[in-house]
Amino acid sequence: MIAFRDVVVTYPQRPMPALAGVSLDAARGHITAVVGPNGSGKSTLVRALIGSVALERGRVLVDDVSIHDLSRRARAVRIAVVTQREEPAFPLTVLEYISLGRYPHLGVWQSPARADLDAISNAIERTETSTFTARAITELSGGEWQRVRLARALAQGGDAIVLDEPTTFLDVAHEMAMFELLSRLAADGQAVLLVSHQLNLVARFAEHMVLLHRGHVEAAGTPSDVMQGAVLEQIYQWPLVITRDPAVGAPALVPLRVRTRGEHNS
């Protein structure tokens, strides 16, 4: 559904490209997770998709059509994006905010039709946000705000959803609930492209993992293919071991403590 082909992006006044020839696919019905250390180019991937940065080389394709040949609106109708950070400047209500997900579907003077209202109430139901639709978005807790942002993206409709670090401010329960919901979306046939720091969670939920490092794809494949101790240790520059998640047997990363001088290992 979404394909990056040999994408190169260089930010002005930076010597090294943020993306140095990245190719990857996010297919319908799967969670595809992009992982990697800080500054590896994960967020630039999302920004390349929404046209916020120019491609120096390569192509970003949506069902084999280059995003350059799609209008921004047409792209937004098909792919919903939840960016890493979003600080609303003005206090819309939760319902008004979620309704903005229908923006790309509406003409300038067109008011929401039945289909739009259905998409909005459906999104509210799936994210379990119905109890606070009248509250101001500026007064939500971190967890509520993330769910409301996801609801806005779901209201947008389309066959793909792209999320950049969606669980940053969530506690364990909300984090798991978020991943379970993404998993259901993928099962319903959506392409879910997820950028995340949470290697262990991603390894449990994603079908396909892509490991980025300094703008290059360092490894790609199933979680077991990508979660290789030696490779990860090299990339993260930190001693670690890969074990198995006791619940489901997915590969799990355990970073080790560094022994410093004067400290005794007991």
Binding site: R73, Q84, L92
Partner: peptide, 20 residues
């Protein structure tokens, strides 16, 4: 309406199809 979307920030607005 486009201003409502723009007020959410540049990246979110771009994701919603706005030419910021």
């Amino acid at each position: 309406r486009a201003i409502d979307v723009l007020a959410l920030g540049d990246d979110t607005a771009a994701g919603l199809g706005i030419h910021v």
